[in-house]
Amino acid sequence: MTTALITGSTSGIGAAFARRLAADGHNLVLVARDTARLGEQATELHDRHGIEAEVLTADLATDEGIEAVAARVSDRKHAVDLLVNNAGFGNKGLYLDVPMADELRMLKVHCEAVLRLTSAAAESMRGRGRGGVVNVASTAAFLPRGTYGASKAWVVQFTQGVARDLAGSGVRLMVLCPGFVRTEFHERAGMGTDGIPGWMWLDADKVVTAALADLARGKSLSIPDPRYKALMGVAKVTPRGLLGGVSSKAGRRYGPK
């Protein structure tokens, strides 16, 4: 049986990855900050699917947390075959309204942790000649929307660049860019969602199904819905100045309340 490690596993897309991978018979390493919630999740998945579910409490906004997870994905005796870098969050407020400490914490989780964990996992996987890494970003990566969008744009460029560098090694890398997904993300950030049109919402389980299918096809970028594929296609040909204005208005309408 193969083993998958998922960061931010207790809610949203991370929890959907855990459910799907457990149902497919993969053992899991579940990573999050809440030990009690991790234990409940591990027990449920073990009892329902008969897989082994290890828990690792770690805060990826700290060096200690990143180092603990990096050590686990580097463990050659208990190999991790798939890494899902899903941990992330949003900050409430426009630029200069958000404390600098919160902005730096976001970059730590979205960029530094992804860099260090991907590197640790890919090195171990390359030695075995097989493995995969899924880095969860967002369609916000393609829009000029402050630190969050910039951090996710970094994840996209980083993942696709590494995927090219490791082509032929047996290690597959893919960045997942969903749109609005029904998770705890907006609630945790204190963001209102009443103004978001119903057609823009995606189901986390369907997002994961599409992502794993794209990974199996060898794609380095997954935008898991035809509606968002079309929207991102339009964004690519829209002048950046106009796009920035539209993005800013959308952020005020659909973002923090």
Score class of each variant (00 low, 15 high):
residue 137 A to N: 06
residue 39 G to R: 03
residue 86 N to S: 02
residue 111 C to G: 00
residue 254 Y to H: 12
residue 177 C to G: 06
residue 176 L to E: 03
residue 230 A to W: 14
residue 48 R to D: 13
residue 129 G to T: 09
residue 41 Q to H: 08
residue 155 V to N: 01
residue 164 R to K: 14
residue 71 A to V: 09
residue 44 E to R: 15
residue 53 A to W: 05
residue 169 S to L: 04
residue 35 T to R: 15
residue 48 R to K: 15
residue 124 S to Y: 00
residue 255 G to R: 00
residue 238 T to S: 11
residue 197 P to F: 13
residue 200 M to E: 14
residue 128 R to C: 11
residue 254 Y to Q: 11
residue 250 A to Q: 15
residue 8 G to T: 10
residue 59 D to F: 11
residue 21 L to H: 04
residue 176 L to N: 08
residue 193 T to G: 08
residue 8 G to P: 04
residue 181 V to N: 04
residue 132 G to A: 15
residue 184 E to P: 13
residue 85 N to V: 03
residue 129 G to P: 10
residue 176 L to A: 05
residue 6 I to W: 08
residue 210 A to S: 14
residue 70 A to I: 07
residue 227 R to E: 05
residue 190 G to F: 04
residue 105 R to W: 05
residue 15 A to E: 13
residue 165 D to N: 09
residue 217 R to C: 03
residue 127 G to C: 01
residue 4 A to K: 03
residue 19 R to Y: 10
residue 247 S to W: 01
residue 15 A to M: 12
residue 211 A to C: 14
residue 208 V to T: 01
residue 139 T to A: 12
residue 78 H to W: 06
residue 154 W to T: 07
residue 35 T to C: 02
residue 241 G to W: 11
residue 53 A to S: 13
residue 67 E to M: 07
residue 105 R to G: 08
residue 70 A to N: 06
residue 181 V to H: 08
residue 248 S to Y: 15
residue 205 D to F: 04
residue 240 R to L: 14
residue 207 V to Q: 03
residue 97 D to W: 11
residue 157 Q to N: 14
residue 45 L to N: 04
residue 135 N to K: 07
residue 47 D to V: 12
residue 239 P to D: 11
residue 169 S to I: 10
residue 164 R to C: 02
residue 157 Q to L: 14
residue 106 M to T: 07
residue 155 V to E: 09
residue 26 H to Y: 13
residue 6 I to N: 00
residue 175 V to R: 00
residue 112 E to G: 01
residue 110 H to A: 02
residue 74 S to W: 04
residue 50 G to C: 07
residue 196 I to T: 06
residue 101 A to K: 14
residue 232 M to Y: 09
residue 23 A to C: 10
residue 113 A to C: 03
residue 188 R to F: 05
residue 166 L to S: 01
residue 196 I to E: 10
